[in-house]
Nucleic acid binder design. Structure first.
Lengths: 226, 226
DNA sequence: AGAGGAGGTTACAAAAAGGTTACAGTTTGC
DNA sequence: GCAAACTGTAACCTTTTTGTAACCTCCTCT
């Protein structure tokens, strides 16, 4: 989970860093003190949420929000000392999703951040990554060395299992179990056909594989590509 | 747009009714003074948003929220006199989306309601753009390679969903969920018919589509046109 | 060298998924 | 109030995916 913080006040940065460290250490905080830099970071880093201070030294905070909204719908919380109603309305109408006034309370702040992230649709979309291979197990979309390869459901399950154990051998039983459940007699035959089909999709020469390798008597394993 | 208000204080009901009448007359306000009744109304009326007062006479407000969350993800704003931080956190963690303390300011209140609805349905979005395709989801008007194509409401929802995920596969479940909600048995049949109708409108040869492509076992995806 | 095991390769058929069409119930616009 | 448009259902057809089985190749062990 990536959180972009656009804020110039060192005290606030520290307070928020601390809050995340204590309450939500698995989140990555990307801080910047400049609004312009912030807009660029939204594009380059694709954060899951943006926290934007309206009182920046270089540019007007509303402008930053407007620029972000030109190309991104990233959830954005506005943070400011002003508690003026007109500002709140303006911020929300311009596309902010929430609004917190300083001084804020640590727990409320984090609760709002989490409530907003929960609302996001693709928030739980997880990718299986192994070296240069990236697989989206829900769609069966595999990216590998610039190519986009479409896998079927079964292929995707096998591939995900191999990638999650990337580098280590996976037994036939474990692989078959992940796809067909533990006791299905035909699995052995079916598996070798599916391995072939996978190799035809990902290997340069399917009969001389460099990625999905055989461990005779054991199972298969995925070699880390150079 | 339906707004369910669960509130017992006559003054607050009046204040909110007035705010809606003046600022947002096209919204329908459904008021109830009982928490239990409120839960039933969420089910029977399917409101677009719920405003829930925690200080109800018959039941505890948190219980009402919990009961609603058992079957519905409707956006919910909690309204209360308590400004105690623990309550705010508790409310948000239990699934509320926003929290406003009384006394509240009319404009801020409405801005928060609208911001919540907007991030719920993406209603604010004027245009969905993908490559040379431009879709106005509010009117169903689609421009594509010089042609102006009128889509029906359902078609437009499906198209928008595909375009927003342009290039990436979208699962049947996600597509159907976006149109008919999450558990509607007939969705699978209906979806394939709507896909056909869309293809008849946008494809040169609907039986050999180049834009709306199938991922068997997964769903559909929109190919980036050259 | 030959037998046996393990996995590879291919072809084909069954099953699942999706495509196509027609029709009927509803809603919408005049 | 009627015609047109929209939507969902169902029946039937086509394509894709999956599983099965036969045969092949390679390696090992005797």
């Amino acid at each position: 989970m990536k959180v972009l913080l656009i804020e110039d006040d060192r005290e606030i940065i520290d307070a928020i860093s601390l809050a995340f460290q204590i309450r939500w250490p698995e989140a990555t905080l990307i801080p910047t003190r400049l609004g312009q830099k912030g807009v660029e970071l939204v594009e380059s880093e694709s954060p899951d949420i943006v926290i934007l201070d309206l009182g920046l030294p270089d540019v007007n905070g509303f402008d930053v929000l407007r620029q972000i909204r030109l190309f991104s719908q990233v959830p954005t919380i506005i943070l400011t000392v002003r508690s003026d109603e007109a500002d709140i309305v303006k911020g929300l109408e311009w596309g902010a999703d929430d609004y917190i006034t300083k001084p804020f309370r640590q727990l409320e702040f984090l609760a709002r951040v989490k409530a907003l992230i929960r609302r996001q649709v693709g928030a739980e979309e997880e990718l299986v990554v192994f070296g240069p291979l990236r697989l989206d197990p829900t769609t069966g979309q595999l990216s590998y060395s610039g190519k986009e390869i479409a896998l079927t459901v079964t292929e995707s399950q096998i591939m995900a299992h191999l990638m999650r154990n990337g580098g280590r051998a996976v037994t036939h039983a474990s692989l078959a179990g992940a796809v067909w459940g533990d006791d299905y007699p035909g699995a052995a035959d079916s598996l070798k056909v599916h391995i072939r089909r996978l190799r035809e999709k990902v290997e340069e020469n399917p009969s001389n594989p460099r990625l999905i390798l055989t461990r005779t008597g054991i199972g298969y394993f995925m070699a880390r590509p150079e």
